[in-house]
């Protein structure tokens, strides 16, 4: 947000004296630090929503419903990881829903021949390859991410129908369902996978060369290039991650309903982008966090679930989600503007 132009910055900054910055007493400072963290603010919002919904519906905070909430978070949550990577570089991936659908169909077609593990691997590799194509077109050839992934979305969905013949495939082995719902430390495998993937993404983005490079690319690619970072390679990687994770979520979805449908994952990209944005990421890149995205996913799922429990018509849910997205970004803008002044 251009509160000040670059031209005036040096002029204003020239009188800066060092050491006067932290004059406020420590307790207030700690509080300031906490509220300055975007994740903390979003977590507070999430808790507020949870408390409100638990008053609105007695079923909301039951164990069954909480497990249900987590279960509903899996598909969009995993896709949102890849989307966070992409958005951090300043890109966007509109093809995730179509890639999920297509890799699901591919899995359904090959699994009778190749078996579960190899079939799953084929689907994930296929997803990664689609991401690689998008990434190379965007990063190496410099095409707009929006356009490339829009094209990929169209191609992916079309291939879904071609490969499946337009009907759903329901010969998924039941062992996949068993796997998805195996309990690991009291939680189902799919939720476990979700949490492990978030942990890995958190570590990768915060503590590896690649992760920091992804932030640097989104924040200032030119400076990153001058400092010797591999800006082409690490701008491609997020699309590969995004494609592969779309396939993972497609597999978990297939395990849940034991069939794959050419329409599966339709509009998934919008939910994923919404979760990332609610989680505080900037669509211009460089700013955002994986924890924020997870909270964003929970907020979306909770609202859907809560509205269902309260018996609100599903027609209204889109309006609710849309309002939350806009409100989240608006609050964020107002808060950070105050901080900058």
């Amino acid at each position: 947000m251009p509160l000040m132009t670059d031209k005036e910055r040096p002029a204003m900054a020239a009188n800066e004296t060092i050491g006067t910055a932290y004059a406020s007493p420590p307790p207030r400072q700690a509080l300031k630090w906490l509220t300055a963290r975007l994740e903390v603010r979003m977590l507070l919002l999430a808790i507020l929503i949870a408390v409100t919904l638990s008053f609105a519906s007695p079923y909301f905070l039951t164990t069954i419903n909480v497990l249900n909430l987590l279960d509903q978070s899996v598909v969009v949550g995993i896709v949102a990881i890849g989307m966070t990577f992409v958005i951090l570089t300043g890109g966007i991936d509109l093809s995730v829903g179509a890639v999920a659908g297509l890799t699901g169909i591919i899995f359904g077609l090959v699994v009778p021949e190749l078996g579960l593990p190899v079939g799953a691997l084929v689907a994930i590799v296929a997803g990664g390859l689609i991401g690689l194509v998008s990434g190379v077109l965007i990063s190496y050839f410099g095409l707009a991410a929006f356009v490339v992934t829009l094209g990929m979305m169209s191609i992916g969905r079309s291939l879904c129908y071609i490969f499946s013949g337009g009907i759903s495939i329901s010969n998924i082995p039941e062992s996949l369902s068993d796997f998805v719902y195996t309990k690991v430390a009291f939680i189902p495998m799919n939720v476990f996978v979700l949490l492990v993937l978030y942990l890995l993404a958190y570590l990768y983005l915060g503590y590896t060369k690649g992760g920091r490079t992804i932030y640097a690319i989104g924040s200032n690619a030119e400076a990153a290039r001058t400092a010797g970072l591999n800006v082409v390679g690490y701008a491609i990687l997020p699309y590969v991650v995004s494609g592969a994770l779309s396939a993972v979520s497609a597999l978990l979805l297939a395990g849940k309903i034991l069939s794959v449908d050419p329409l599966a994952g339709n509009l998934l990209e919008l939910d994923a982008i919404a979760a990332v944005v609610i989680g505080g990421a900037s669509l211009f890149g460089g700013r955002g966090s994986i924890i924020g995205t997870l909270i964003g996913v929970f907020i979306m799922v909770m609202i859907r679930n809560g509205l269902n429990l309260m018996g609100v018509s599903p027609f209204w849910q889109g309006s609710a989600i849309g309002a939350i997205i806009i409100a989240a970004v608006l609050v964020e803008r107002l808060v950070s503007r105050r901080g900058a002044r």
């Binding site: 670059d6 910055r9 400076a223």
Partner: peptide
């Protein structure tokens, strides 16, 4: 190498 335009070529504002 310290390039000419700090804001554009050197500083990564979000880090």
């Amino acid at each position: 190498f310290v390039p000419e335009d700090r804001r554009r070529q050197s500083i990564v504002p979000d880090l």
